[in-house]
Structures are given as C-alpha cells and as structure tokens.
C-alpha cells in the first residue's frame, strides 16, 4: 500500500516536471506550423530584409526589416541607458551602501520590477512623451527615444539584482587580498571585483536585454508604431512585438498576414532563445 502511494506520487511529480517541456514543445510546434506557412508566398530573405510592411495592401508586402530595426534601435537605446546605471547601482548596493540604504534600495528595485508594463507605458505616455516632444522640438514625442528610456526602467531591476548577486558572490578573500596590497576601495572594485564578477554581470545585461526585446505593451503605447525604417532615434518606430499585438486582432485567420505575424513570433522566439542561452552560458561559466 505504502509502495503504491510512493509510486503514484513519484509519477505525478514526473508528469508535472515533463509538462513544462511538453508545453514549450507544443507552443514551438504551433508557432512553426503557423509561421512557416508564410514562406509559401514570400522568400525568407524578402521577409527578413524587405523594406516595407504593408500586410493588407494588394499584393501584400511583408518585409519586416523596419520592425527588426525598430526593435533593435529601442533595445540598443535602452541598453545604453540601463547598463551603466544598472551596473553602477549594483556596485553601490553590493559594495558601498550602508546596510540601511542597501535594504531600502533593494526594496525599491523590487518595486520597480513589480510595476505592470502597461502602467509604465501609461506614465511614459503622459510624462515622458510630452517632455521629449518639447525638449527636441519634434512634431511628436512618440519616438524610439521615449521607448528606450521607458524600457531602460524595465530592464534595470533585472540588471541590478543579478549583477548585485554576482558582485556579492565574489569571494571575500579577493577583496581582502586587494586591500592588503594597498588598493583603494575603488581600485579593488574596478580591478578585482568587476573582473571576477564579469560573467555574472554579462548574464545580467543579457537577461535585461531579453526583457526589453520581449516587451510589448509599453513600447506599443509610446513609440508611435510607424512601420518605417528609422533614421534617427527621435523618429517613431514600431517593434516586432507591437506589430503582433496590434495586428493580430484584425488579421484574418489563415491569411498571409496572419501567417506573417506568426513568422514574426518565430523571429522573436529565436532572438529570445539566443539571448537566454548566451546569458545561461555566462552564468554557468561563473559557477565553475
């Protein structure tokens, strides 16, 4: 009787464990099935590097280059803003801040991570967007820059908490060794702590960027959604994610447009997957 109970519990847990893999595989297969259908009418090259996205014109033009560039521009912008601030914040929390400030800051960072993206987008829309418009004297503040700034806020919690963790797990003996050689605190941080934590910090950055690329709601609200190739960061752009979210509702099931949106999903999946694998390999390297 006891044995049977053990057996059932074990198998139940096994099923739970396999379920997650099973669902991922299922989602991926569905994505492939729906997405790959678009390549019956468009070549892969034309899809990825086509310069115009007019999915409902006749004939439909399904080039996602503007969308890829839009995502890229916003991501690079957000990375440029969030990496130095995030890593700086992590250094401050891990190394410099007195205990009380440290606890407050950590709580603050967690709170930032807890804000739903639609709320951030909304706040960005009413505060940041007019600010960018007036500051640069633009016809509209719905630009890649606004998106980058808002997304930097979203990437920051990930970057800070993982980078802080990486710095914190640098063996204390390294720090002592540097101090014992007469290094100042900053020299110790710069020359010993950061190199020692570098793989963890890289992973933090990658995961932060992963968050930015996958983000949808906030970018849709504040980047203007113009599917044209951006020439400056002060131009409106549209991202891969926003395109799917905005157009899925109106695309006719089974149409070329519908398949193309799924193909965009595949592109996103591949990008996210690559980023996560890279980040994971950095984290793994750190543990060795």
């Amino acid at each position: 009787m006891r044995k049977l109970k053990e057996f059932i519990v074990e198998k139940l847990i096994l099923i739970c464990g396999l379920a997650s893999i099973f669902f991922v595989a299922l989602i991926f297969l569905f994505l492939l099935k729906e997405g790959l259908a678009v390549f019956k009418t468009v070549s892969l090259f034309k899809f990825l590097f086509g310069k115009s996205w007019y999915p409902i014109s006749e004939p439909a033009q399904l080039g996602i280059l503007p969308l890829i560039l839009g995502s890229l521009l916003i991501t690079v912008g957000a990375a440029i803003i969030s990496i130095p601030i995030g890593v700086g914040c992590a250094i401050y929390i891990a190394e410099i801040a007195p205990l009380k400030i440290k606890e407050t800051l950590k709580a603050g960072i967690e709170l930032l991570a807890a804000i739903p993206s639609v709320v951030l987008g909304f706040i960005g829309m009413v505060t940041l967007v007019p600010l960018v418009k007036n500051l640069f004297n633009l016809p509209t503040g719905l630009t890649a820059l606004s998106g980058s700034i808002m997304l930097a806020f979203m990437a920051m919690p990930t970057i800070v908490s993982i980078a802080e963790d990486a710095l914190y797990s640098v063996p204390k003996t390294y720090k002592e060794g540097a101090f014992a050689l007469g290094a100042t605190h900053w020299q110790t941080i710069w020359r010993v702590m950061l190199p020692a934590a570098s793989s963890g910090i890289l992973a933090a950055v990658m995961l932060g960027i992963g968050r930015v690329i996958g983000e949808t709601m906030a970018v849709m609200m504040i980047t203007g959604n113009a599917a044209v190739i951006p020439h400056t960061i002060l131009a409106p752009v549209r991202t891969l994610t926003a395109t799917i979210a905005a157009e899925m509702g109106e695309a006719v099931v089974g149409s070329e447009h519908y398949f193309a949106l799924f193909a965009i999903g595949i592109v996103l999946f591949v990008i996210s997957f690559a980023i996560n694998v890279t980040a994971d390999s950095f984290l793994h390297k750190r543990q060795q």
Binding site: P171, T173, Y174, E176, G177, A178, A180, R191, V192, P195, A196
Partner: peptide, 8 residues
C-alpha cells in the same frame, strides 16, 4: 592569507 587568494 590562509587560503591562497590570487585574483582571477
């Protein structure tokens, strides 16, 4: 130190 601590 007690445990050799060369930097990485």
């Amino acid at each position: 130190f007690q445990r050799p601590n060369p930097f990485p």
